[in-house]
């Protein structure tokens, strides 16, 4: 079994390497088609001579395949060039923004789990009751609501009208092991609440429905009937037998959900001016800051490949019925 896992991981890593390499080609060449960043960044008064100098400075005067090889050579060492805008290495900019994005995603994930799983179980156990139906109906509204619009509405209600919570920025942060965290101060927490609610809404609705569907299937299975017949307390059956068996599908989507939270964080970060990676990406796209866009894309793809690999491994550990060699196919 251990050998099989190793082979599986090695094969997946090799596939991933091919994907990442192909991606560098696609991203690098296509991003060079959409516009010349020099046009945006230089002084409009600039003459031909200073334009040429700017091109030279950014290395944009060389043939494109040469630019690519330079890019590739540096990329392997984790260097995607300096941001055109503020002359800081792009990788550094992204790493610097990572904690803020992670914090938002993790907090949103907590909300998703704490509300989604219990609500889903409740409505799964009582599908015909008014409360069960209400939860179901709520979940449809939940994933139909456009996330960015909900963010705006929350700002109108809680920041503009009620003046209860701040609508922009991250607030006070505390440094823990060199990483700034806003979860630990009351002010930071108040800045985190609205973005996290906005971000978690869609995912909460999804987890709720998934849990509910899982519960409805599991309660009909023989071993649950047997547990009841054996005279076990209803609570024990629900919290041990049912919960254990619905966790498998839930845990497997959690990895993807976390990835989704990081990705959709881009929208939330833009609305609430949350200084994370996503806001950086949108700002960089708008000013054609190529090194940052490319670095972000490569970084996020590597992150997702890692998450997907971990989820597959975790899946096989959690559910012995899933054979790891079956996953490779």
């Amino acid at each position: 079994m251990g050998g099989e896992v190793t082979v599986f991981i090695i094969r997946r890593l090799m596939q991933s390497a091919v994907v990442v390499f192909a991606l560098t080609l696609v991203v690098f060449f296509s991003i060079n088609i959409i516009g010349n960043p020099v046009d945006i960044l230089i002084d409009p008064e600039c003459d031909q001579e200073c334009y040429r100098k700017a091109m030279e400075n950014f290395g944009l005067d060389r043939p494109i395949h040469e630019q690519y090889f330079v890019f590739l050579e540096n990329a392997v060492q984790g260097d995607f060039g300096d941001s055109f805008l503020n002359k800081i290495p792009a990788t550094e900019l992204i790493v610097e923004r990572l904690p803020a994005s992670l914090e938002l995603a993790i907090f949103a994930m907590l909300i998703t789990l704490v509300i989604g799983i219990p609500a889903g179980m409740w409505s799964g156990l009582r599908p015909e009751s008014p409360s069960g139906k209400l939860i179901m109906g709520g979940s449809i509204v939940g994933f139909s609501l456009p996330g960015f619009w909900v963010g705006l509405m929350l700002i109108i209600i809680f920041s503009v009208e009620l003046d209860l919570l701040p609508s922009t920025g991250r607030g006070e942060t505390v440094e823990v092991l060199g990483i700034r965290i806003s979860l630990l101060t009351l002010n930071g927490l108040s800045h985190l609440v609205l973005p996290a609610i906005t971000l978690s809404l869609y995912h909460t609705a999804l987890i709720m429905r998934l849990t509910r569907a899982g519960v409805r299937e599991v309660v009909l299975v023989d071993f649950i009937k047997f547990a009841h017949a054996k005279g076990l307390a209803a609570r024990r059956v629900v919290f041990v037998h049912v919960l254990k068996n619905i966790l498998i599908p839930v845990v497997t989507v959690l990895g993807l959900e976390f990835g989704g939270l990081l990705a959709y964080g881009v929208v939330t970060e833009t609305i609430f001016a949350w200084p994370g990676m996503g806001k950086l990406l949108i700002d960089s796209i708008n000013i054609l800051d190529r090194p940052v866009v490319v670095a972000y894309v490569m970084f996020i793809v590597l992150l997702f490949i890692t998450i997907n690999l971990l989820v597959d491994i975790l899946y096989s550990v959690l559910d012995p019925r899933v054979r790891i060699e079956g996953m490779g196919k």
Binding site: V27, I34, F304
Partner: peptide, 28 residues
Amino acid sequence: DTLIMRLVDFKLGFPSILIAMILLAVLG
């Protein structure tokens, strides 16, 4: 079948908005 489903699995490993954002950043 293997080829198509590999592509599907690969695609589904990434959130929609992320792929769309990258594409639009490139396409305009």
